[in-house]
Design a protein around this nucleic acid. Structure first.
Lengths: 213, 213
DNA sequence: TTGTTCATGTAAGAAGTTACATGATTTA
DNA sequence: TAAATCATGTAACTTCTTACATGAACAA
């Protein structure tokens, strides 16, 4: 079973849901978990049903097809528990945002600042949403480490801490970009694209300019 | 062009490399950037060459096939700069680790602690590697926001801050698991799998136990 | 009456992983 | 002499995204 399968099982482990509800929940993975489109979810639910890990019942609802409510089974809960306690391979981090940052030296200082400011704004926005979600947890639920709610709350806490770290980093970067902007030769503000190649060693178009002292 | 294509361009933007060197660099993306296997990299390099964004020259080397060194072209650098300054869609976070945490209530307290301790250890390990990589940057390189090195160093800094946040979170979680373990009813230590279903509403096998007060 | 939400599904394609393949050079 | 590293490539498969499709209920 794929990771998505276990993600769905995890959502179904506390209460039954329809495929639509799962799709709604899975498309706003603000700081946590897993994301998926409905086109991936419905076939995966069928696989879970084939494996006997969920059952579904038709419930009244609109639309040309039956509305199905999915419920985890005892074997499904067993499978989820086994998976949760199995070895976890290190994850490969992939961040297009960090790739962009790495290439920011090719962008004009003004646009680089605009980029950083926008990303900083997104961090703040995410923190707001995380706070709202965290507010939905009752303090009592948070107390016991045997409750599912404790761990759901805990993942929110993870998102908050990591986002706060990112926010502090963007603030630092913005400060660097603003204070050191004046010190640097205005490479990017010129219209000559060749000046950008001055940092390369062995660029194609020959005669690379020496790095400014 | 895919994100991987720009990731390769970004690595080639400071100096030429062979496909093998790119594959080596891309498989240890400790806290930053992008990861890829060589089986993905070689076809992508061919696409970059087709687009005229890189050129390659055959250099002496072992093996049944030619060893090729790839160099970014002026149009390639232009394309990278344009991409770096284009709108960035919010990334979908996918963390199997957080999914596991969310299902930790199904795991015995001892195993949950072991899981958290192992993840904490990995954070420390990553911090060590990040420190080593950061030590390779000369202080002078770090100063100017016009240098590629500044932004490469900056992404390392991002990784350090985020990993430190994760480390603090694991410490907090471990403390929670250890101090509150005694307070909770020992649901998981029993051999009865049905006791785990007590938190579900509408579980399949009927007669769900009432949540402990 | 036009658009949005509810509700489910399939199809085509892009992206990523794992495995297979070759063969020289270096290390144990 | 056996294994690992260098160095490149293809094939098969899984996973994920985007688009197409249906049709009722409800809101503007």
């Amino acid at each position: 079973m794929s990771t998505l399968g276990y993600a769905l099982l995890a959502l179904l482990s506390t209460r039954p849901r329809t495929g639509y509800e799962l799709a709604q929940r899975m498309r706003r993975p603000i700081a946590h978990m897993w994301a998926a489109q409905h086109s991936q979810i419905y076939p995966e639910l069928a696989r879970l049903a084939d494996a006997g890990w969920v059952t579904s019942t038709v419930i009244p609802g609109p639309g040309p097809r039956d509305t199905r409510r999915y419920t985890i089974t005892a074997p499904g809960l067993e499978a989820l528990a086994t998976w949760a306690d199995s070895p976890l391979a290190p994850e490969v981090p992939r961040s297009e945002m960090l790739l962009r940052v790495r290439s920011l030296w090719l962008v004009s200082p003004e646009r680089a600042v605009a980029f950083a400011a926008e990303q900083r704004r997104r961090c703040l926005e995410r923190l707001t949403v995380l706070d709202q979600e965290a507010a939905e947890f009752a303090p009592d639920d948070v107390l016991s480490t045997g409750h599912p709610e404790f761990f759901a709350y805990t993942t929110l806490r993870y998102g908050v801490l990591r986002t706060q770290a990112a926010l502090a980093w963007w603030d630092w970067l913005l400060q660097q970009l603003r204070t050191r902007q004046a010190d640097v030769l205005p490479l990017m503000t010129e219209k000559d694209p060749a000046s950008r190649a001055s940092w390369q060693q062995g660029a194609t178009s020959g005669t690379p300019g020496a790095p400014p002292a």
